[in-house]
């Protein structure tokens, strides 16, 4: 991620900072970070703790200056949102390099404070998307609108119900059911791994909120007609018909054809 994000300290300065940012980046890149929280310049003690956390846990792969090594990406300019997403979902620090880092809640090695410190440190190295405000990551979006946006922008990879889907060569779009609203937002904003970026001009913060509302609804709404079979479509339905369905019927047929005791 080499995009630049507007940085600001106060919500009231949002327009000004945006204009400034546009000028600075030559009108090429603009990312409307919705939040005032997690600004790149935190307190110096937080930055210090963040740096020591970084050196201890991340520098082996990403380099002491976070500028990347061989296949490992540079973290300069990825922003606090990317760090928060990768670390809070347990993807980083990467324990076992494979095709793609998997979401792993048992691999979350830091407290939320530590993650925040780490994110601030990385954000201080180069401007990037900030951690989103809870205003857009909590519930309350338009579920129907979110569903439509999801089907246009997301369902082709993540499946109609966010159950996940296959990408090329072993990569995959993960299941979204247990992903927090904040992480969803951060993923759309930063485009982790194979996922493309959905910046705020593509999906506005309100759009993202709607998408999150839709996914949360999929997770929380009761099933309309019994077990969902994982919401994976006709494959699991076919498997059910071929195993349990016809199995029960054949069982009945065997009982029927056998002589009574």
């Amino acid at each position: 991620m080499s995009s630049l994000a507007a940085q600001r300290r106060h919500p009231a300065s949002i327009v000004l900072v945006l204009l400034l940012g546009l000028v600075i980046t030559g009108g090429l890149y603009a990312l409307l970070a919705p939040s005032s929280a997690g600004a790149a310049v935190g307190s110096s003690s937080d930055l210090k703790s963040g740096k020591s956390l970084f050196l201890a846990n991340c520098a082996t792969c990403h380099g002491v200056n976070a500028d990347g090594r061989e296949n490992n990406p540079s973290l300069v300019g990825v922003g606090a949102a990317a760090v928060d997403f990768q670390v809070s979902s347990g993807r980083m620090p990467l324990s076992n390099p494979s095709v793609q880092a998997a979401r792993n809640s048992s691999n979350v090695q830091f407290t939320s404070t530590q993650i925040k410190q780490l994110a601030e440190y990385v954000a201080s190295l180069g401007a990037g998307p900030a951690i989103p405000s809870s205003k857009y990551t909590s519930l309350g979006g338009n579920i129907a609108k979110g569903g439509e946006l999801f089907r246009v922008n997301c369902a082709m990879c993540h499946n109609f119900a966010g159950s996940g889907g296959a990408l090329t060569r072993g990569k995959y779009a993960p299941n979204l059911m247990d992903v927090s609203g904040k992480q969803m937002y951060e993923a759309m904003l930063t485009g982790p791994q194979s996922m493309p970026v959905f910046n705020d001009t593509n999906l506005s913060p309100q759009d993202k909120k709607d998408v999150i509302a839709y996914l949360k609804n999929v997770k929380n709404e009761p099933s309309q007609g019994g077990h969902t079979l994982g919401n994976l479509g006709p494959v699991t339905e076919g498997m059910f018909a071929w195993t349990i369905g016809i199995g029960l019927l054949i069982g009945a047929a065997v009982w029927l054809g056998r002589k009574a005791a």
Binding site: M156, N159, F160, G165, L232, G233, P234, V235, A241
Partner: peptide, 17 residues
Amino acid sequence: YGPYEPTMVTAGAQPDW
């Protein structure tokens, strides 16, 4: 699944078995 729109598609697009 949602209504059919020619520009949309879902992962795991399969017919019945």
